[in-house]
Design a protein around this nucleic acid. Structure first.
Length: 258
RNA sequence: CGUUUUUCGUAGG
C-alpha cells in the first residue's frame, strides 16, 4: 500500500491520470488492500486538478468496498467542495450528508447524529467562508467550534485573523492576535506575516515593522514571505531608508526572493 | 504514505 499511496500522490500532482489508473489496476490485481490513506490521496489529487466528479467516484468505490471513511477522508471531501467553490455541498458533507448519497450532492441530506467534525474540518469551513468573503459565516463557524468543545489552534486563528484583514477589521485582527495566547495557540511565522500584511493594507509601515520586531522577540526567524511582504509594505509607505536597510539585510542572509 | 491558514512571481485566460 505504501508504495501505491506514494505513487498516487506523485502521479496525481503531475497530472498523469492514465498512470494513476494503471497503478490502480495493478493494485487490484495484486490484491493489495486500499486504505483510507489511499482513497483520501486519490480524492485530494483529483480535487487539486479540479476533477470533482472523478474524486466522488473514488469515494463511491471506497464505500462499495465497505470501507468507512475516517476523519481525514471526510475532511478531504469537504475540502474538495470548498475548492470547487460549492459552499452548499461542503456544508452538507460537514453535516454528515455523505452517508445518504455520496456522488449526487443535491440528493443528499444532513445526518444529524453521525456528524464528525474535528479541528481540521472546522478550519476548512472557516477558510471557505473567508474565501467567499463571508466574514459573518466564518465568525459563526468559529463560535460554533468552541461551543462544540473543539479548541481553536494556530491555524484557526491565522485564518480568522486573515479574514479580518480582508474585510478591513484590523482592530479585531489585533484582538484575535492577543487572544491566541490565552487559548493556548502559539503564534507562528505565518501569524506574524499576516499581521504585517494587514498593517500594510492601511499603509502603516511602522506598524508592520513593529510586528517584525515582535516576531524576532518571540524567537522566530523571519522567512522569505516575511521579507517579500515587508518590502512591499514599507516601500509603498514611502519609507525609503527602512526599505534599503531591509533589502541590505536580506542580501546578507542570502535569501532569494525572486 | 493522506486533509485546513499567510506574500510575490511566471504561464494561461
Amino acid at each position: 500500500v505504501f508504495f501505491y499511496n506514494i505513487m498516487f500522490k506523485i502521479l496525481g500532482r503531475a497530472g498523469v491520470w492514465d498512470l494513476v489508473d494503471r497503478f490502480w489496476e495493478d493494485m487490484v490485481a495484486d490484491k493489495v488492500a486500499a486504505t483510507n490513506i489511499t482513497f483520501s490521496t486519490l480524492i485530494d489529487a483529483c480535487g487539486r486538478a479540479g476533477k470533482r466528479q472523478e474524486a466522488l467516484l473514488w469515494f463511491q468505490t471506497m464505500q462499495e468496498r465497505g470501507l468507512e471513511p475516517d476523519q481525514v477522508t471526510i475532511n478531504t471531501l469537504i475540502n474538495l467542495h470548498k475548492r470547487a467553490g460549492d459552499l452548499k455541498a461542503a456544508e452538507l458533507f460537514f453535516n454528515g450528508a455523505w452517508r445518504t448519497c455520496a456522488t449526487d450532492v443535491a440528493a443528499s441530506r444532513p445526518a444529524q447524529g453521525k456528524r464528525s467534525r474535528d479541528l481540521v474540518a472546522y478550519n476548512t469551513m472557516i477558510g471557505m467562508y473567508g474565501r467567499a468573503g463571508d466574514y459573518i459565516g466564518a465568525s459563526r463557524m468559529f463560535a460554533d467550534m468552541m461551543l462544540a468543545g473543539v479548541s481553536p489552534d494556530f491555524i484557526t486563528f491565522n485564518t480568522m485573523i486573515y479574514i479580518c484583514g480582508c474585510s478591513g477589521r484590523r482592530e479585531e485582527a489585533e484582538a484575535l492576535f492577543k487572544r491566541m495566547e490565552n487559548k493556548g495557540a502559539v503564534a507562528d511565522e505565518t501569524t506574524y506575516n499576516i499581521m504585517i500584511s494587514i498593517a500594510g493594507k492601511e499603509g502603516d509601515g511602522a506598524g508592520a515593522l513593529r510586528y517584525l520586531e515582535k516576531m524576532k522577540a518571540a524567537g522566530m526567524e523571519p522567512d522569505d514571505v516575511t521579507f517579500r511582504t515587508l518590502i512591499c509594505v514599507i516601500s509603498a509607505s514611502g519609507m525609503v531608508k527602512e526599505t534599503e536597510q531591509i533589502l541590505a539585510h536580506v542580501r546578507e542572509l542570502k535569501f532569494s526572493l525572486g
